[in-house]
Design a protein around this nucleic acid. Structure first.
Lengths: 226, 226
DNA sequence: AGGTAAGGCTACGGACGAGTAGATATTTCG
DNA sequence: CGAAATATCTACTCGTCCGTAGCCTTACCT
């Protein structure tokens, strides 16, 4: 519980700065995720990273700086994963489906990252909130554009365009919170979680209680490799 | 900024325990909401409450105890407000509508409470999470039961019943996150927020981009007084 | 009145943790 | 090989803040 994480054989070995920075960031994400920002001590992070505390200050600055760096890196990776998963030429519902799958797929593989991003960053009032707010804003904008385009394709969608951003915020929020719920119910596959949300936000309860189900278009579930 | 909140005239007045406890809890919610759990100091809370620190310890115990008490009180009031707003004999969509209106109505009038409940309590890993998790669980159960009943009324709803709890979690999460979004966009009425969410979760994007809109049943927007 | 309990305060102890000083070891390069 | 740069450590300072010890003061009861 209190022993250093990294191989004691490697302890003391001299490594280039880039490697150490990555180790420190990894350790920081782990510890921040477990204990929260304030309860996480720099000493514990240094211990988990297998390096001494002054190195953290030398490479990544203060505790705030370190936390910001974590947020920045994790947020970037998550967004990249989502953006990489969608193809702008497909139908709106399929785009949404792919985006959700990428989102939950990434989170399923990086739960610590999600804890830090969603639970920790949002709670500390300082400049951290900005970082995560910016990310959320990008996501909301993405979804809102998708909705508005879908609406104008149909020639209608007055309501959707009017409150497009609010709707997108609700969707993004639903995804975030469902991801949170998932942390406490890990006995579900990423696909199942994504499908649940897809059904709710695309069909709506009104259709669901009528027995309707949204299904991805044939082709073995949406694979798009040529 | 750093002067005590309460009327200096009243300072030093002797008041019964129940009154002081309420003042302390109010101050604690305010400070916890503004600074977050760890950054909030007992000294600041005592100052805002217009009482000295030892009284807090005498009446409400440690900092953890105090925070737990805040969570407990605020969560109880929020849930009471929601439960009071719904009538079990109405149609499912109308029940949902009333529940959402009560929810956002309460939050609009008690933003600090919401900040503490949603942003702070969830981030501190300790026993606080349990408290708020328990509340969320009650809400999810409520919604899940509503969905399942709606589904079995229609005789179908296989999908809804199957993943009823996950759907309910997604809805509750959407509501929570939309409330969060609302904190940063206060230029919206509670009713508008509730309507946005209602449209999303009942109709779904699929119907919304077709131009459909969900509206509360006549009678001036859902009033149910006889 | 006088005793007693409850309300209230000032002022301190002690722990924890961010950040730093200063020294040491290893690589790199002229 | 020597010097400069880089990587690394141990051990400390200093501030913040939780929690409390000890004392005063007002209301109530008989």
């Amino acid at each position: 519980m209190s022993v250093p994480r990294r191989d004691p054989q490697e302890r003391g070995k001299r490594l280039p700065r880039a490697v150490r920075e990555k180790q420190i960031l990894d350790a920081a994400v782990t510890v921040f995720s477990r204990n929260g920002y304030h309860s996480a001590s720099m000493d514990e992070i240094s211990e988990v990273a297998g390096i001494s505390k002054p190195m953290i200050y030398a490479y990544l600055g203060s505790k705030e700086d370190l936390f910001s760096a974590c947020i920045h890196r994790e947020a970037g990776e998550l967004l990249d994963a989502v953006v990489a998963g969608i193809e702008p030429d497909l139908a709106p519902d399929v785009q949404l489906w792919h985006g959700l799958r990428s989102f939950f797929g990434y989170i399923g593989a990086n739960r610590e990252s999600w804890r830090v991003l969603h639970r920790q960053a949002g709670a500390q009032g300082g400049p951290f909130t900005q970082e995560v707010t910016a990310m959320r804003h990008r996501a909301v904008t993405l979804v809102a554009a998708l909705l508005v385009r879908a609406g104008s394709d149909e020639g209608i969608g007055e309501a959707a365009s009017q409150s497009g951003e609010a709707l997108a915020a609700a969707l993004v929020g639903a995804a975030e919170s469902l991801a949170d719920w998932w942390l406490d119910h890990p006995d579900q596959s990423p696909g199942a979680i994504a499908a649940t949300l897809m059904n709710m936000v695309w069909l709506g309860f009104g259709d669901l209680v009528d027995g309707q189900v949204w299904l991805p278009p044939s082709r073995s579930g949406g694979e798009t490799h040529p």
